[in-house]
Amino acid sequence: MVIWQAYAAAERRRGVSPREAGRAAQVYLRSRTHQLREDLALGAGPTVEDLAAAARIRREHLGVFGRVLRAHRTELLALAESNALTPDRALAWMERVGELARADPRLDEDRRAFLATSAQEGTAVVTP
């Protein structure tokens, strides 16, 4: 899953092209269309948990993350509309989720921790 842009860059360095990441995001979103609609309406559920786990959002911030997604559900559902969902659009969807999460200080703190961990593992360059 590509949520944080720096994570996408790290994936490219490891041989996963943006196109491949987009295809994976497209498959994920298409296979979970119904569940995604339900989870975004509630701000909780398996897809919210999957996305949070992929971005390494701390469990104590899961509710915040769900509320952020719920607040933007109309936009996110429009981007994930299966009739128009391309790999590029699916990748844009993931990046938008990252942008929305970064706007909350707690979730941005999780992003920074994720990037710091990735940098320590040698998979990403962190620039605050």
Rank of each mutant, 00 (worst) to 15 (best):
L115Y: 00
V2E: 06
T86V: 05
F114S: 02
R19C: 03
H72D: 05
H61E: 04
R14M: 14
D50Y: 06
V2W: 05
Q35H: 03
G98A: 13
V27Y: 15
D88T: 07
R30D: 08
L40K: 09
A24L: 08
R14L: 14
A116T: 12
L62G: 00
E95I: 08
P128Y: 15
F65K: 05
G122F: 13
P87L: 05
H34F: 12
R30H: 04
A54Y: 06
G45R: 12
A41Y: 00
A71G: 08
E81S: 08
N83Q: 14
D50T: 04
A25W: 06
E20I: 05
W4G: 01
P87T: 08
I57L: 08
E81M: 10
A101R: 14
L91W: 13
G15H: 05
A71H: 02
A41C: 00
R37F: 01
R70S: 14
H61G: 05
V125R: 15
R14N: 10
D39M: 02
W93S: 14
D108W: 04
D50C: 04
P105H: 12
A90E: 09
T33G: 01
R67N: 03
P128M: 15
A6G: 08
A21N: 03
R30F: 00
A55E: 09
L85Q: 12
L76S: 02
A71F: 02
F65Q: 07
G45W: 11
G66A: 07
G43V: 07
G43P: 01
A25K: 07
H61C: 12
P105R: 15
V64F: 03
E99N: 10
A119K: 10
L85I: 04
V16D: 11
L76C: 02
T117C: 10
N83F: 11
D39P: 00
T117E: 15
Q26R: 15
H34L: 12
M94A: 13
R112E: 15
T33I: 04
V16R: 15
L100V: 10
G63L: 06
P18R: 12
V16Q: 11
L51Y: 02
R112K: 12
E109A: 13
S31I: 03
Y28K: 04
D39K: 05
F114N: 04
A78E: 10
A90K: 10
P87N: 11
L76W: 07
T127P: 00
W4I: 09
P105M: 15
A84F: 12
Q35T: 09
D88M: 07
R70N: 14
D39F: 01
A90I: 04
A92F: 06
M94V: 01
E11M: 13
P46L: 04
H34K: 10
T74S: 08
A52E: 06
R111G: 00
L29R: 01
L91N: 13
L51Q: 11
R32T: 03
A25V: 02
A92P: 03
I3C: 05
R111M: 13
